[in-house]
Amino acid sequence: MAGSSQKGKKRVDISLQHESSLDLLPREIWSCIAPMVASNSIQDLFNMQAMCKVFLGAASSDTVYKRATMYKPLAHFLSHLNGPERRFLERCAEVGNVDAIFQQGFVDYFPLGLRDKGMELLARAFAEGSVEAGYLCAMLLMYHHEDEEEVQMGVQMMEDIRISGQLESCSKFFSGISKDVVVLLLEMYAPG
């Protein structure tokens, strides 16, 4: 009998030696950390997913993609239309991330030339709370459409934004995007 208790004790010691310290925190904690990682660096999120099964599960959930904040300038996504950034942006938009829906609409409308899809996404982002998406949508309706009804819809959207007191912040936001695009173009076309 003494030998059997030793056997059991060894088994416990062996399992404790192989237990991961990552398992000490519940998955919910890792799921709270992963959106912060994603917001800081898309590459870091991919690295986190590649680390282990615990991180893969936590960093691949819809919650991560819905809560990730797009800190990179909008212009950054223009230079990564086919890379992991694009797939990241699409996944975020699929699960309802308002920042990503706005950026996806911007990218679809301008560099990809998918005007209908871009406008649909911008209108959706505006409906879900992105005033910047509404501002862009209104500008496009007023200046890039010939249908009088669409132009009037753009004027009404712009008036709603003006009344809300957010017109100036939208103007500053798009002024910043213009500067980011100029910097990006200079970097892309700089000599050798």
Rank of each mutant, 00 (worst) to 15 (best):
Y109C: 00
R162C: 09
M157A: 03
K53N: 14
H76A: 11
K172W: 09
A138I: 01
R115A: 05
Q166V: 01
L114C: 08
S61G: 13
S171T: 12
E148N: 11
K66I: 08
A133Y: 00
F77A: 01
F88D: 00
V54E: 12
G96Q: 07
A58L: 06
R87P: 00
F110D: 02
Q156P: 03
Q166W: 07
V95P: 04
A100N: 07
E128T: 02
D44H: 07
R67D: 11
V95E: 09
G154H: 04
S79R: 10
D99W: 05
E90I: 14
G165S: 11
V131Q: 03
A59S: 13
I161F: 03
Y65K: 01
M158P: 08
F174C: 04
K172M: 13
M48W: 06
Y71D: 06
L114M: 14
F173S: 02
E159Q: 13
M153Y: 11
Y109I: 03
L122V: 00
F46C: 05
N82D: 14
D160F: 01
A127E: 14
I161N: 07
A58P: 04
G96R: 05
K72E: 11
R67Y: 09
V98W: 06
E148W: 01
Y109F: 15
F55I: 07
H145M: 13
T63L: 11
V98S: 07
R91Q: 13
A123W: 00
N97A: 10
E128R: 13
A125F: 00
M153L: 13
F174A: 01
E148C: 06
V54S: 08
I101G: 01
V131M: 11
R67E: 15
Y71M: 10
E132A: 11
E85Y: 13
G83N: 02
Q43W: 03
L74Q: 10
L56S: 14
E146F: 10
I101M: 12
I177Y: 11
F173A: 00
L45Q: 03
A58R: 04
E120T: 12
E149W: 05
K53E: 12
E85D: 15
L89R: 05
G165T: 06
Y135Q: 01
D147E: 08
Q152P: 02
S164A: 15
G134F: 00
F102C: 03
P84E: 10
E159A: 12
H145A: 09
N97C: 12
E94D: 14
A123L: 12
A127N: 09
K117H: 06
V64G: 10
S171H: 14
I101S: 02
M119C: 09
G154Y: 02
L89S: 05
L114K: 15
G165D: 01
S164D: 12
G83R: 03
H144V: 04
L112A: 10
K66F: 08
F174P: 00
F106A: 08
D44Y: 07
Q156C: 09
F55W: 15
A59G: 15
I101K: 02
N82G: 10
N40T: 15
T63K: 15
S41Q: 03
A75P: 02
E148P: 13
